[in-house]
């Protein structure tokens, strides 16, 4: 099962290696990892996507919590949440495919962020499923380079 875990950390040197070291040392897997400051510059938020059976996920959250620099650990995939990832794709765009690329990008509400005579660089944001769909469609046209941010996620606010 895929789990998206959100971790609040003290923003200090070495804290990220405590987290990644924990994963490599205990053989837990990391599918993606994304970290940046929160409103409080002393605190960073790390979003981590991992996969594993329930007992392993339980160990992961407990072990993360045990790190002294960790403030809070939430498995946000346990409740309703929104997730987003951004991808930059450089796709081949020659005279015969330029129009088609633009059409595809438009359907996915993407943006062209860089143009050259033979390629477009495009930016697309969305949940992982959407990113995967764009990639699948652009692949036959010719993807030259791809950079993904990894997932960030936020629990939905309670609706009452």
């Amino acid at each position: 099962m895929k789990h998206t875990i959100s971790v609040l950390l003290q923003n200090k040197p070495g804290v990220l290696s405590r987290v990644t070291g924990l994963f490599s040392g205990r053989g837990f897997n990391i599918e993606s990892l994304c970290v940046a400051e929160t409103l409080d510059p002393g605190v960073s938020c790390l979003t981590l996507v991992t996969r594993g059976p329930d007992p392993i996920i339980e160990q992961i959250t407990k072990q993360l919590h045990k790190l002294i620099d960790v403030i809070k650990v939430v498995d946000i995939s346990e409740s309703d949440y929104v997730e987003r990832e951004m991808v930059l794709i450089r796709v081949k765009a020659e005279s015969n495919t330029r129009a088609e690329v633009l059409r595809v990008i438009d359907i996915f509400r993407g943006k062209v962020v860089d143009v050259s005579p033979k390629s477009y660089a495009v930016e697309i944001t969305g949940p992982q499923s959407k990113i995967q769909a764009v990639i699948d469609i652009l692949k036959p046209i010719g993807i030259q380079e791809i950079v993904r941010t990894g997932t960030i996620a936020m629990a939905r606010a309670k609706k009452f």
């Binding site: 040197p13 070495g14 290696s17 405590r18 070291g21 924990l22 040392g25 002294i68």
Partner: peptide
């Protein structure tokens, strides 16, 4: 030594 002992200390400080 901080890097080396990170996985075998409860915590460490530079």
């Amino acid at each position: 030594i901080i890097g080396i002992t990170r996985p075998c200390t409860k915590h460490n400080y530079l």
